[in-house]
Design a protein around this nucleic acid. Structure first.
Lengths: 342, 342
DNA sequence: TTGAAAGCGCTAACAT
DNA sequence: ATGTTAGCGCTTTCAA
């Protein structure tokens, strides 16, 4: 697997490597004739500069690292597509890392990213993470970081998120307007900010509409369908069932959806259901799942733009931006009862 | 962002860099005392070897590249999890590339992988790819490649796949045994081997059971639910509807599922449906989707093992292995009619 | 047991 | 307009 280097070209053309290097980078101080000869040979030999050497020289890799909990979660897959969209156009390559919701793994990922001289980091933190020092020390060393979705409030850098409170509020409001009286919330893990904000939105809506707030109407689930399926089964087995459920994510909602069907209950009449994120699959369920749509692709784009900005202006202190994106309510059959128009 | 190098340690300890290097690698020719001092200081300074320098030196990156069409496809996400499982344990890092089913993109990915001195490549080819020369030239230069799932027959290297023919055969057989008479097949794109093999399995089963084979009972769809939803809508609008559908993948089946519900047809009584892959979501649909399960995680593990083997034994010619994994039929409500037991 | 020097591929002063 | 030299961080002969 011998690869062509600048040396090969120099030898063949009886030039020094620096001349070749300059010719290749189209430097103005190289003779037009020489330039042509170099370019032609490079072309013929299929010369490719060795990025590793470049990286060693410049301490830049033109790679940006992205840590997400799971790529299998379509929400993150779409965010990544948005990130790649911007990064690719700017000449950066996106290296994807999965924390698998595990703290140790996340720490390892961060270490890898820092050691491998990635130019920056985009991250949505793992459920298990309660200590943020691995991010903090990186940030303090001046390493460009942007948080998205599952952000960390303790670190003063750019963030991209949606208005979780408002999204949750409108989802709950929607259930209220559909005539639901016993609205439960299947929340995400407590310590994640998004879980708490969505919970607060749920509570605020109930409060505003004069509905009782019952602590035992809120149960918690991991952000995946397997876990929520179990949680929902228990919920539905209780004597006092909900007649409406707001799930903290679509994955959670999908588990609830399956549990409701399994229990032989009708949706939305006996139980109305709404999720959060509007995954592509949601509209294809039976009945189609209502959800609070998040602009995942746009979130990825925005995060990448902010990060690249940070990378290109090193040291320059810029006030951290928190870009809060809008959600929109997608009301579908899983929650739309035949009530008088709102 | 100054980072600690071997030089810093050498200076501080009044040693040469080579001594430090040797001490760090626990060379036997270094005094026990010196070793201790070096190790301690390295620890205290949080020294991390620069992998970029190592990579330039050794032409190895300890990275392996994986190209998949889309990480948003849960099948590939699971395969990747399997790959990471093996790679991680062997000290390799997995760099994920998406072709987005696009040929140009795939070529770029291959180029990146080769330029960046990745140690090997695992790949499942894009739908749009009809020319394999980018893989061929890499392979001819001795670069380790293993294909999985969407393999390329023209290149003589390790492959990991499932028995698509048999899986498709048993799915079709299952529909026949459920009493279906008009079994349609929503196939994948023609030129993909997996599509063709599944189509052949479908045909073979019909033939064996003395059922007619009708060309217009086979329609083609991209491997995603959006496209298959449209295809299925057309199918169901025709005067002579199917009473059974075998879809070439679960994503395709999910679109069909939604179309069948949308058309108000009952599943499995009016139309029985079965897919291929058994994605995690499939069992959660309403009605739950029957499918041919593929061991995706195992496929990833096997592919990674074969690749690392190839990497560790460079040049050594080994007869290419095709590891064909078993599928298993998951019969669920979308196809299970109340017929006498098979 | 340790050090000096060369080199991986490339670029950027600093010559000429 | 082109060449020489040094160096990015590290390992590895070769010397001592």
């Amino acid at each position: 697997m011998r690869t062509i280097t600048i040396k090969d070209i120099a030898r063949e053309l009886n030039l020094s490597t620096s001349t070749v290097s300059r010719a290749l980078r189209d430097s103005s101080e190289i003779g037009i004739e020489t330039k042509k000869r170099v370019l032609e040979l490079a072309q013929r030999l299929d010369y490719n500069p060795n990025p590793v050497a470049l990286s060693l020289l410049s301490s830049q890799s033109h790679d940006i690292g992205v840590i997400v909990p799971e790529i299998a979660n379509p929400f993150f897959a779409i965010v990544i597509a948005g990130i790649e969209d911007v990064a690719f156009a700017q000449g950066y390559h996106v290296v994807i890392y999965q924390s698998h919701e595990d703290y140790e793994r996340e720490v390892l990922n961060v270490k890898h990213i820092s050691n491998r001289r990635k130019d920056g980091l985009l991250v949505s933190i793992a459920t298990a993470t309660k200590d943020y020092s691995h991010f903090k020390s990186l940030h303090e060393r001046g390493f460009p970081i942007v948080f998205f979705d599952r952000i960390c409030d303790e670190i003063d850098t750019h963030k991209v998120l949606v208005d979780d409170f408002e999204g949750a509020y409108s989802a709950t409001e929607h259930l209220i307007k559909q005539g639901c009286e016993r609205i439960f919330h299947v929340a995400g893990p407590d310590h994640l900010l998004i879980s708490r904000r969505r919970l607060h939105g749920y509570r605020a809506a109930l409060l505003d509409y004069g509905k009782p707030i019952q602590d035992d109407w809120v149960v918690s689930s991991a952000y995946n369908a397997n876990n929520s399926l179990e949680v929902a089964r228990e919920l539905l087995a209780k004597p006092e069932r909900p007649d409406g459920i707001f799930a903290s994510s679509d994955n959670i909602a999908i588990g609830c959806h399956a549990a409701i069907i399994e229990a032989g209950l009708s949706m939305p009449d006996e139980i109305a259901l709404i999720g959060f994120s509007d995954l592509p699959i949601s509209a294809l369920l039976n009945p189609p799942l209502s959800s609070v749509a998040q602009p995942a692709f746009e979130m990825g784009r925005s995060a990448a733009e902010l990060l690249i900005n940070l990378i290109k202006n090193p040291g320059k202190y810029t006030t951290p931006i928190s870009n809060v994106l809008k959600t929109s309510l997608m009301a579908r059959k899983s929650s739309l009862r035949n009530v008088s128009v709102e």
